[in-house]
Amino acid sequence: MPIRSFCTEEGVTWQVWNVMPGHRENTERRIGYDRRNPEPVIRYTGPERRVNPDRRTPAPLLSPHLALGWLTFECPTEKRRLAPIPQHWEQFSEAELARLCSTALPVAPIQPFIPMRDP
């Protein structure tokens, strides 16, 4: 994942990088038998009752226009997102990156979870 830095005409320094959503390779650890038990798991041979073929795969949380990835632009006070990723954006000049940044959509900051205290 390449990261570029550029400065706008207003003097704001931005960083930009691409984000490619998807499955990470080799993340599934529940394959095969139960490692806590020396005996292999008895395989169910009845009819399939699950609705989804793989219940471990969650439904996608991304909107369709983000499915192929996006560019993230970030400065100390703001974050923006641009989709789809332009081809060869890594070779763009600073002026071209600044133009893309100006068309990118602002992203709402994520608020940290603060648990309520009992009075």
Rank of each mutant, 00 (worst) to 15 (best):
I85G: 06
W17G: 13
A98P: 03
E39H: 15
F92Y: 15
E10R: 04
P53W: 05
V41T: 12
L61H: 07
L61F: 08
H88S: 14
E25P: 02
R36T: 09
R56Y: 11
S93H: 08
G69V: 06
L82D: 05
S5H: 09
A67M: 05
T57Y: 03
I42W: 13
M20I: 04
Q111G: 06
G11K: 00
R50S: 14
A95K: 08
P58V: 10
N37G: 02
N52W: 07
M116Y: 06
S93F: 08
F113R: 03
N26S: 11
F92W: 07
R117H: 09
D34V: 01
R117C: 01
T27G: 10
W14C: 05
W70A: 13
E10C: 06
P40H: 05
P60W: 02
N26Q: 11
A67F: 03
R24A: 13
R117D: 02
P76Q: 12
A67C: 09
G22K: 00
Q91S: 15
E74V: 12
K79P: 00
V16L: 00
S102G: 01
V16I: 04
P76I: 04
R24W: 04
C7R: 09
S93D: 15
F6T: 01
S102L: 11
V12Y: 04
E25N: 06
V12R: 10
A83F: 03
T57H: 01
H65D: 15
L68I: 02
P60D: 15
P47M: 11
K79A: 14
L105E: 12
E48S: 09
D34T: 03
R4H: 14
D118Y: 05
P112N: 09
A67I: 00
S63G: 07
